[in-house]
Amino acid sequence: MPLLEIFEWLAATPASTALRESHYAYLAFLATHVLTLAVFLGTAIIVDLRLLGISMSRVPVSQVLTRLLPWTTGGFAVMAASGVLMFYASPADKFVNLFFRAKMAMLGLAGLAVWLFFRTVHRSIDDWDNDPVPPRAARLAGGLTLLLWTAILVAGRMIPYQQYWFT
């Protein structure tokens, strides 16, 4: 598979080897990844629960979105950056890891779900902004993304267990 060869070549580059062999660099990326999870997923959970009508039902949805989403995207950016660095430390190992593949596939789906939300449901937000329980389509978007983020977290936590499960 050509893609695997690319990642094997990437793994052989000096910077990748240096990251892989540096215990502290990897530890720092992993700690950053986990700590920013509290910012990214924490605020995403609040937003999703608002869309589901479970939490903060008296606060307008638009207010929750505009005031919290910058923190969600900021947290995501730092998570993604630390994630890319951890991938770069062992690209070939990660590429063949089934939990990693599942995580990446679900990340794509989550991105698609967020994009769809803003392209469709969010367009009519003025009509249901103050509803304690938003319409079905908004609840579906909130529930779906919450489920996807949770599944991504599970898959991510399972990445180190590839050997136990598949070899």
Partner: peptide, 24 residues
């Protein structure tokens, strides 16, 4: 092979939930 990671995953989810509630 799954009990420890399963419990650790719930623990991690708890971190995110606390993170959201505390940050707001």
């Amino acid at each position: 092979p799954w009990l420890f990671p399963a419990i650790a995953t719930v623990h991690l989810l708890g971190l995110a939930i606390i993170g959201g509630a505390v940050l707001v």
